[in-house]
Amino acid sequence: MIHAVRREARVFFAFAAMVPKLYLAYNAWVVVEFVVQILFMLVFVAFWRAVYANTTTLGGLDVGQTINYILLAQIVAPLVQSRLVSEFGGMIREGRIAIELLRPVDFQARYAVESLTSLVVFAVQKLPLVLIAGAFLGLRLPSDPAAWGAFALSLVLGSMVLFLTDWMFACLAFYSTETWGLGVVKIAVATFFGGALVPLQMMPAWLRSIALALPFSQGVAVPISFLAGVTPVSDLGALLIRQLLWLVGLGIASRLVFRQAVRKITVQGG
């Protein structure tokens, strides 16, 4: 029993160890994405400053809270931009999926481990961005360690919610041979309803209820609101329970959906 667990742990550790290497392999991309994110931040700061020239609060948020929120959203946004559907599409097209499914490791667990490790690499990678936003763009971070703790905890849970959602969506690759466009649609929906463009508080009631019925805000709006000074730490308990419910529900649903979808498999080549 213990032997099996240790073996399992070793396998997953090996998968996890691959993740930073993957990121480091594309140096040019890291630099370019960094610069592009700063450019987008400049656009958003200019936009929101112009918005607040006419009003003091919007959706209950003042200009400082909103700028904090938008800058953090911009930094965290790449989390909702993963496209597992394209990855699945590639594996199916090339026939690699057959080998992946034959491996004596749980297919989904392996991706979950990779996704969690990515989050750590991601956090390290985005640290310079946070510092620059703090020094030049007016990002004001709280000094209260509890806010940081709440942020970290809900970000970890939220990123798992995003992963499971992405996993379910990726199962469409078993039905459609077009996955680039599907990935774009998913990013568009997740970015907006995750609250990466506008804080949920500012949305009219009908839009906000759609956003809350979808899982995306769990990985964007919920965690960053703790750091932006929008959500008080005292709300942590209730929000964590909601995240856990999402996790359990999506965990079960994603496995059911995958089991159903994988039967449809049509390998095109290889």
């Binding site: 918005v51 919007l58 077009e178 466009g181 774009v184 649609v185 568009a188 929906v189 839009l207």
Partner: peptide, 25 residues
């Protein structure tokens, strides 16, 4: 799917703009 997919990104942007601008003059 390909032909309509990119429009979703723009619609998200327009929607965000609408959400904000309906509250300010």
């Amino acid at each position: 799917i390909g032909a309509t997919s990119t429009s979703f990104l723009q619609i998200g942007g327009v929607l965000a703009m609408w959400v904000v601008m309906r509250q300010i003059p």
